[in-house]
Amino acid sequence: MNRPEAYAMVEILGAAHAVQVIDQMVKCASLEVCGWETSCGGHATVVLSGAVSACAAAVDSIRENPPCEVCGACVISGPSEELIRLVEQLKIKLK
């Protein structure tokens, strides 16, 4: 499993918006969907992995025309071993 170069994470209100955000980000740049988690407060956190430039482009596209109220969006480049291990668990849930 090759190490992902960067993770793009977006936190939005509502699970339905999560699907909208994933769709917009995947169309904008070539990213692999790692999964998304709906935390108890109704916020959904979407995690995608790919090249740093692709993640940055996707996050910028979310910031420029957000499909809904975006609580936060960030790019984590060069993720540490622990973060990769956690996102792998997220992927297992995806299957």
Partner: peptide, 14 residues
């Protein structure tokens, strides 16, 4: 925020 937690734990692990 869950996203903030991921960013913070990545910084901590590094």
């Amino acid at each position: 925020g869950l996203m903030a937690c991921y960013v913070a734990l990545d910084a901590a692990a590094k």
